[in-house]
Design a binder for these strands. Structure first.
Length: 259
DNA sequence: ATGCCTCCCCGAGGGAGA
């Protein structure tokens, strides 16, 4: 089962590029971030026509997450637990049953800039809630994947110019420590389980020719519970998508699970 | 990069992103 995460930076803007990538690679499950659409406006037909079931958790103009799946999606929940006043659509969960049941968690972690400020405080508070949900997944010993745009550069090796990011909310020590606390509960960062070399990126800014200069960062991650990591067969990043017509600034990151 | 694009809102130009 191939499970991909892809921050598409607007579903309307990606109405051609996203289906083209689906037709190329035919993933079984796709966790989308930044759909920038309410549920009623999401172009479900684009995906249902290709055999995908669609579940969305949208919001006007900003944020918004969704799941596409060739297999039925069960037990869908929307919103990260822990703050009933949180209006931002950044979390969706569902279970897909192949050879085994896989709990899918799609997330769009807050950017957090500028630092300091309320947006940074929100990011850190959101990560505390994420940690609580992660602990519950581990306690359940589930085959589970938490995947999405984490807006975290885990290590210096994950940025072409780490020195430029030292005080940024994506890379400053406090942010990275919060991410490490979650990973260190027992999760496997799928890409880093296979690739230790630097220079592996999932985002290139639209500005200043970042793609042409390979000035990238790795911020889109798939974290696996031990039960999911045992089923990991392969993983990769479809970086060439960034060089196509009218691309998102992120590219798809995927895993193949024996599930 | 304290932002050189691109997205969204809409129907101008500003907020947001990373």
């Amino acid at each position: 089962m191939r499970i991909a995460t892809f921050n598409i930076n607007g579903i309307r803007a990606r109405a051609e590029a996203l289906p083209a990538w689906l037709d190329d690679t035919s993933p079984d499950v796709v966790l989308l971030q930044e759909i920038k659409s309410v549920d009623e406006s999401f172009p479900r037909d684009l995906f249902e026509d290709r055999g995908y079931n669609v579940e969305t958790h949208g919001q006007k103009s900003f944020n918004g997450v969704a799941i596409l799946s060739k297999l039925p999606l069960e037990d869908v929940t929307r919103g990260l637990p822990g703050d009933d006043d949180d209006e931002q659509a950044r979390w969706i969960e569902a279970t897909v049953v192949g050879d085994t049941a896989v709990r899918l968690c799609g997330l769009y972690l807050p950017n957090g800039n500028p630092v300091p400020g309320p947006k940074y405080d929100y990011k850190l508070a959101w990560m505390e809630r994420l940690k609580s949900r992660a602990e519950a997944l581990l306690e359940g010993e589930e085959v589970a994947v938490m995947a999405g745009d984490y807006n975290i550069i885990p290590q210096a090796e994950d940025a072409a110019r780490p020195d430029a990011w030292t005080e940024d909310a994506l890379f400053r020590l406090e942010s990275r420590e919060a991410f490490r606390r979650i990973v260190n509960l027992g999760f496997t960062d799928a890409i880093r389980a296979r690739v230790q070399a630097p220079g592996v990126y999932s985002f290139w800014d639209y500005q200043a020719g970042a793609w042409d200069r390979n000035d990238g960062i790795r911020i889109d991650h798939l974290l696996l519970t031990p039960q999911a990591a045992d089923l990991l067969a392969d993983c990769g990043i479809d970086a060439e998508v960034r060089g196509r017509t009218k691309p998102s600034d992120h590219v798809p990151v995927w895993i193949d699970l024996n599930a």
